[in-house]
Design a protein around this nucleic acid. Structure first.
Lengths: 141, 141
DNA sequence: TATTGTTATACTCTATAACTATA
DNA sequence: TATAGTTATAGAGTATAACAATA
């Protein structure tokens, strides 16, 4: 294994651990904000729907890097909880567009606050400049 | 939601998506290297055991930020596949130390190469300096 | 024929709590 | 009493392929 390979492996470990810590801290306090029990996957999905609504399924699949069959189930679960609605697209009858309900929108606000709190805690060792640097590097990926 | 909160949420989305892309690319080519079908979780575990062997369960739990009951199962699965062995600690009879078998060591090499290849591909938009910066920022978390 | 989305199945991963053994 | 690890159970997440409907 070359030196570069070793560094890549190191970064993969760092990312894996960081995501697990984020996830762990979120679920540890989930009872405070995840009143609909959507879980971390459903939470990220809600945040993304909020960002691009009305969201075609295919774009959610792409943005969240998930499987399309999973996406169908995840959206159906949110729909059953009254957090999102689906409507056919006027452009293309195959597409169904997902939007937030008022209940979904208020869930999004709580989830955003919880995520921000966790991230802010985990990023504590970094200065504001460091955080900007990290964010811009991630954005380029 | 404050501006800082929004930036934190943005970073969470970026990290979530990056991990999913890494995961997706690894599983897409898993047949080339994951001959023992340990999956992504088992792969990360093997890499960590390789790093700190002989590894007490508690340190694996801490480093991988997983639950201890999951760790028991994950290690047992690797043991059943002949990739790791466990031995009691001379210091403390409660501890069991995990080490790689020769088969486990060769699996680690293949996994490292696969991870490095995926990371290298995903990090392509970044220069070598950028990668160093990213790695050092992550290391401080 | 390609794209969008759904269904079905099997499997893995995860969270939680109760439990044993040793310190 | 505290710590290291195991077991049991239920639920959530995931991969895969086969399928229907529209473009």
């Amino acid at each position: 294994m070359s030196t570069n390979d070793a560094l890549d492996v190191e970064m993969a470990k760092q990312l894996d651990r960081l995501m697990r810590r984020i996830h762990g801290r979120l679920t540890a306090t989930a009872e405070d904000f995840d009143v609909h029990k959507v879980g971390p996957g459903g939470g990220m999905l809600l945040l993304t729907i909020d960002e691009i609504a009305p969201a075609p399924m295919s774009e959610l699949v792409q943005r969240l890097a998930r499987d399309k069959s999973q996406m169908t189930r995840a959206v159906q679960a949110l729909e059953a909880k009254g957090l999102v609605t689906r409507a056919g697209s006027p452009d293309d009858a195959r597409k169904s567009m997902v939007s937030l309900t008022p209940a979904g929108a208020s869930a999004v606000i709580r989830i955003q606050q919880a995520v921000a709190k966790v991230l802010d805690g985990l990023l504590e060792p970094l200065t504001a400049d460091d955080r900007d640097t990290l964010r811009s590097l991630l954005a380029r990926l």
